[in-house]
């Protein structure tokens, strides 16, 4: 049973107070995701001085500035590529990437599939709100079919990406998904991702209430977050017929895991072996 055991966790210990108030809209799910990440970091006792957070552009990309760590807000779509350089050059750092659905799957899609394939130790947190929020609400690669956005006035006609299936197929060592409705479970999933020795991809279903929700008449933020409950199917029920969840609902929890060798350590070992041989 998952309960909020972290009575000693105070999110303010991990936030840059000088950056408050934050810029997220009321009802935005990203704050919940950020809190879950910081809670997971706290649970694991990660040293803030050794923690590096690299983020891209968009609403999700702005989160790095709020974290009291070594933070890098880089170019649109490229946080995984920056993080690859940083993590290879500094294996002593714990490198976390925060990205959004547009940042990670559209402009940065190539970096995602190759980060999955390379399996360098990085934790990639993709906050999926189905929309380009910061630029005013355009369609993204994860926007559900028929949804209205400023660039799909006829309703979205393009099929959407299943980011976790993509990451799994590309060979990511750890793949999981959770919704912002289930905060302790989200924290546990991020924790498992942070602990994974290779590349970990964690997708967080996060609501954009102000732009996406309004455009699609999805109700208040509490209604939107409650809707998440009825739209998911936890991984424990993935293969069972006897389930309270719909078979076509969104799978959550740990969805894939493998123990392929971590790239950075493999490279350093090969280099050491070559040096030893010469």
């Amino acid at each position: 049973m998952l309960i909020d055991t972290a009575a000693d966790f105070d999110v303010r210990d991990y936030l840059r107070k000088e950056m408050m108030p934050h810029f997220l809209c009321p009802g935005c799910g990203h704050g919940i995701a950020l809190r879950a990440l910081l809670w997971a970091i706290h649970d694991l006792g990660l040293d803030k001085d050794r923690l590096a957070v690299v983020s891209g552009i968009g609403c999700a990309g702005r989160l790095s500035a709020y974290i009291d760590a070594n933070t890098f807000h880089v170019t649109h779509g490229r946080p995984l590529a920056y993080a690859t350089g940083l993590a290879l050059a500094r294996p002593d750092l714990h490198v976390v990437v925060i990205t959004g659905d547009g940042d990670c799957l559209a402009i940065g899609g190539n970096h995602l599939i190759h980060a999955c394939r390379r399996n360098l130790k990085l934790t990639c947190l993709m906050l999926n709100n189905e929309v380009y929020g910061m630029t005013g609400g355009q369609v993204s690669p994860t926007t559900s079919e028929t949804r209205l956005t400023t660039t799909t006035p006829l309703g979205n006609q393009e099929p959407h990406f299943d980011a976790c299936a993509l990451a799994t197929a590309a060979g990511a060592g750890f793949v999981g998904r959770e919704v912002t409705h289930h905060v302790p479970k989200l924290k546990e999933l991020i924790k498992a991702g942070l602990e994974h020795p290779g590349f970990a991809f964690v997708e967080v279903q996060s609501d954009c209430t102000e732009i996406f929700g309004r455009k699609n008449d999805m109700g208040s933020s509490s209604e939107m977050i409650m809707r998440q409950k009825s739209e998911i199917r936890p991984s424990a029920y993935l293969d069972t017929v006897d389930t309270p969840f719909r078979s076509n609902a969104l799978p959550t929890g740990i969805l894939a895991r493998n123990d392929r060798p971590e790239y950075g350590a493999t490279y350093r070992r090969a280099a050491a072996a070559r040096k030893g041989a010469s």
Binding site: V54, V74, T75, R78, Y82, G85, L86, L88, H114
Partner: peptide, 12 residues
């Protein structure tokens, strides 16, 4: 990605 990784390494 090459340019990005180089900057990432230098930031390290």
């Amino acid at each position: 990605a090459s340019m990005a990784a180089v900057i990432g390494a230098s930031m390290g």
